[in-house]
Amino acid sequence: MNNVFVYIEIEDREIADVSLELLTKGRELANTLGVKLEAVVIGKDVEGLAPELAKYGADTVWVADNEIFAPFRTLPHTAVMVGLIQQEKPQIALFGATPVGRDFAPRVSSALHSGLTADCTELVIGEHKDAKTGKEYDSLLYQIRPAFGGNIIATIVNPECRPQMATVREGVMRKEALTTPAAGEVKNIDWKPMVKDTDLAVRIVERHIEERKINIKGASIIVAGGYGVGSKEGFQLVHELADVLGGEVGASRAAVDAGFTEHERQIGQTGITVRPKLYIACGISGQIQHTAGMDGSAMIVSINTDPAAPITKIADYAITGSVEEVIPKMIKYYKQNSK
């Protein structure tokens, strides 16, 4: 009762990074609240994952293991998650803001009539006093997220309904293994009474998984282009600089929407979150939509014609100039000075 739940997402029998990140955050929240952290694993041949989950802080590992649960389908996973939450009554339930989490967490929240906050960038326990009723709450989950295209930061609370549910994007929170693993006690979910025949009505008839071609998340150097790069051709310069420096190419949403580059490269609130050693922002104005996904970079260099662009406020070095002028010089002086 009243524990913290984390839904564990499995990709090719491996635990998704975002689930381990959520366990790390969940451990911290559970410690603050003085409750247990419980992982929920729904899939096929997943029992062996418990030790890994314990390493990231899971006191309990709930398991539903059957072929109907893999590959992921909305309805069976929803049925088990709803059934288990009704049985165990956690106060918090966290999901990855992945295509899987964003598909079924809203459905779970609707079935339980509890609120769900999407794409949180921060989760904190805090007090709350309801402005209308005056009722006071000790320890609610502050669900913090950018909203309105990233122009505001909203703190959302869920005073009355349980569990308090949130999704978090991959890479937003840190994952950290414990020095001494938690208990990781495996408990089997009695899922058969939870799943109805109609929950199996949607059939998967074909499935193709592509290799990940672009690896922005793992890159220690990222050269990212924004709308200010101006064109698809202009993006070639961004690629050249990334190649020379041994980095990857990223992009802002505006550049992706304008068709300058592929969607897989989008960094920001609705894209990937990155923390490279060096981030070079080319022609990126720096709306929070974008900076939410890169402001954890160790060093930020910005190239922008507008010296007052918001990006210059978070940059370590702000170069006032055009991408066409500055990038070739960076390439030239890098080549001259490296070796």
Binding site: L116, N151, I152, T155, I156, G286, T312, K313, D316
Partner: peptide, 19 residues
């Protein structure tokens, strides 16, 4: 069920950027 507790407009914290 969800209530907005607080809204902050995004104000960028200026750090020591070298121009």
């Amino acid at each position: 069920p969800t209530k907005v507790k607080k809204i902050e407009n995004v104000v960028f914290q200026a750090k020591e950027a070298k121009t």
